[in-house]
Design a protein around this nucleic acid. Structure first.
Lengths: 193, 193
DNA sequence: GCTGGAAGTTACAGACCGGTAACACCCTAG
DNA sequence: CTAGGGTGTTACCGGTCTGTAACTTCCAGC
């Protein structure tokens, strides 16, 4: 009967997937565990058998989201093997697609905004994962032959981060609409140096 | 005895000021009205005599924060009367000071992340106020004699927005540390065109 | 077919949430 | 002195939150 909720996979996977989706759409503090389990076609007890607390579920969701994002990098390498500059342009393209497709921005950044407690377990992993993403982009810029690779990578990072949050406050017609133009002109400018 | 909480001003003002501060530090959904009134040295009934709901209090807080931010623009004009380019550099300087002094970013952007309900009354005013700020920056760039004023203003906006959210996820040592350098080099580059 | 573990069910605890009612108080304007 | 509005106090409502206990049901592997 497969039920449609999540193709009748194991409860833990359904919970994780549903939680990711609901946290993304409604925010972490905007979703209760009851709502998650119901949407996942299971119940609260089962959730607490697999995750010791909501906080641990949050952390696991962030890790899963980061793992998905990490797979995108593999696509770049697959589509443009060895051509790091083409991969950088693909990164810009992919970022712009994410902006068009979804106005709720980056789950990790959003979580950092929502979870203000400085000792929240999720803060550790957010920082780790964001730093790992930064490393990847720096390496991509450097391998693309750009001199000030760190500076370009950081600038592109801030632009994208800003675009993703700007979409949530002013909407898609705001400054974020110019993201591709900004990013491409930046890359060109750094290459010319 | 003045009590120290807010120098014994009127309850409404104390509530508004305290709520701004607590929303900023702990997030909107992370603070209850009881905590606000207690910190403001008053009680819940008094809050609900001045604000018809928590949502209205939120809106009023955002307006108050925007009004404060608006006063910063007056400083620019006062310190560099007529010199729009100097005012633009002052904007960069001020933005960098805000980044150093406070790691919780922009209240309006944070509110947009937290308040996911599309019909939330705060969403209207967030969009309005952000658009007003954008107008100001565009005008400043244009009056500073920059050709593609909108594009520069939007780019600077995204950079700052990104820096403010990046501080919350990766911290002050992340990409946001390079904000001034990025912004100044952007301005120089646009001026050269 | 039996058994053992995973999953579902129901009910509940204890805390907190936004919001309200009823009433006592104080302080200032007349 | 007095009247009245702003304020403080207490108690409460109904709902929601995370997390747990006790029990039943299902199903796969032997």
């Amino acid at each position: 009967m497969t039920d449609g909720v999540a193709e009748r996979s194991r409860p833990r996977d359904r919970i994780l997937e549903t939680a990711q989706d609901m946290f993304h759409k409604h925010g972490i503090k905007g979703v209760g565990v009851d709502a998650i389990t119901e949407a996942a076609g299971t119940n609260k007890m089962t959730l607490y058998r697999h995750f010791e607390s909501k906080d641990e579920l949050i952390v696991e969701c962030l890790r899963a989201t980061a793992a998905k994002a990490s797979r995108i990098w593999d696509e770049f390498e697959a589509k443009h093997p060895g051509d790091k500059l083409a991969q950088l342009h693909a990164w810009v393209q992919k970022a712009s697609e994410l902006l068009s497709a979804d106005s709720r921005g980056c789950d990790m950044a959003n979580a950092a905004v929502e979870l203000t407690e400085t000792d929240h377990p999720a803060r550790r992993v957010i920082k780790e994962l964001k730093e790992a993403q930064r490393e990847k982009l720096v390496a991509l810029c450097r391998d693309a032959g750009i001199g000030q690779a760190e500076l370009l990578a950081d600038t592109l990072s801030l632009l994208l981060e800003g675009a993703r949050v700007s979409m949530q406050s002013v909407g898609a017609e705001g400054p974020s609409a110019q993201f591709v133009r900004m990013a491409e002109s930046l890359i060109a400018s750094f290459r010319a140096r």
